[in-house]
């Protein structure tokens, strides 16, 4: 299986998640070995995912946890748990 750049791109996401088949993986890696463009695209996507996962992206509001537990505490004092989320 030989791949053009265009055909590698749809696999980048699955490749990162490791949900490609062994055969696809081989073909992708063979392509990446000699294609700097696709390697750089893969690296950039991967890098963006690492940055996204960082706790500094979408920080919790200050005092979030305290307010959460205060609210829960008030509910716990009020009623026993029930069978319906509504």
């Amino acid at each position: 299986m030989r791949l053009d750049c265009k055909h590698v791109w749809p696999y980048i996401s699955d490749y990162i998640d490791d949900t490609v088949t062994p055969e696809e993986r081989r073909a992708i890696e063979e392509h990446l070995e000699h294609c700097e463009i696709c390697s750089a695209i893969l690296d950039s996507v991967h890098n963006i995912l690492v940055l996204t996962a960082d706790d500094r992206i979408f920080r919790l509001p200050l005092g979030y946890s305290e307010r959460m537990h205060e609210r829960i505490g008030a509910e716990l004092a009020k009623a026993a748990p029930g069978d319906s989320p509504e």
């Binding site: 509001p61 307010r67 069978d83 319906s84 509504e86």
Partner: peptide, 22 residues
């Protein structure tokens, strides 16, 4: 929106408590 999300998060936790039996 962080403020709206916080309200929704609190409400979701309360609903989880109220529905824990399910």
């Amino acid at each position: 929106d962080a403020t709206e999300a916080e309200d929704a998060a609190q409400e979701a936790m309360i609903k989880a408590y109220r529905g824990l039996g399910s």
